[in-house]
């Protein structure tokens, strides 16, 4: 039997009837057409499906849409404001933080959770925060630099690259 869910995604209220077995990632991608959230491993290891749920990074391939009833969700599509890239998005562009780009939305959403809890993380703290996100192209160095770029920009430090 379908269940009614009401939730906010990227600032917009939605209401849908979903099958209980609908995964949150499929609801976002297929129902809302927000395809920036990726399905990688589909086993909650790789982190490419990371979104913010009530401000916390979660892997939505291992959540049901019904679990998001009442939640406030931010996906990669919700980060830019009025056409201006979020400092993390800008950082990934400036520091070559992506190659194929598949892991990038998850990396950025995990980094957004990190920066909201720790505005000025050390390199070690950034690497630790990314333990649940896999990148098979970059070797992580430029991803770490991209997040440092964003932290510096948010903290209005001079960006040295």
């Amino acid at each position: 039997m379908k269940k009614q869910i009401n939730l906010t995604v990227n600032g917009k209220a939605y209401s849908h009837e979903v099958e209980p077995r609908t995964l949150l990632v499929h609801y976002l991608r297929d129902t809302l057409r927000l395809t920036g959230t990726h399905v990688g491993c589909d086993t909650s290891s790789c982190g490419s499906c990371t979104i913010l749920m009530d401000g916390q990074a979660v892997k939505c391939c291992s959540l049901l849409a019904v679990q998001a009833d009442g939640a406030n969700i931010t996906t990669i599509e919700g980060l830019a404001e009025n056409g201006t890239l979020h400092p993390l998005q800008e950082g990934f562009r400036e520091e070559h933080g992506l190659q194929c780009g598949f892991c990038t939305p998850g990396m950025i959403m995990t980094a957004a959770d990190l920066l909201s809890n720790n505005a000025d993380p050390s390199e070690e703290e950034i690497r630790h925060a990314l333990e649940g996100n896999f990148c098979r192209c970059t070797g992580y160095h430029n991803i770490v630099k991209s997040i440092q770029y964003a932290a510096n920009k948010i903290n209005k430090k001079e960006v040295v690259s």
């Binding site: 995990t110 959770d113 649940g132």
Partner: peptide, 9 residues
Amino acid sequence: IGDVQIRNK
């Protein structure tokens, strides 16, 4: 346990 995302949920 797990990673940040797993620990959050």
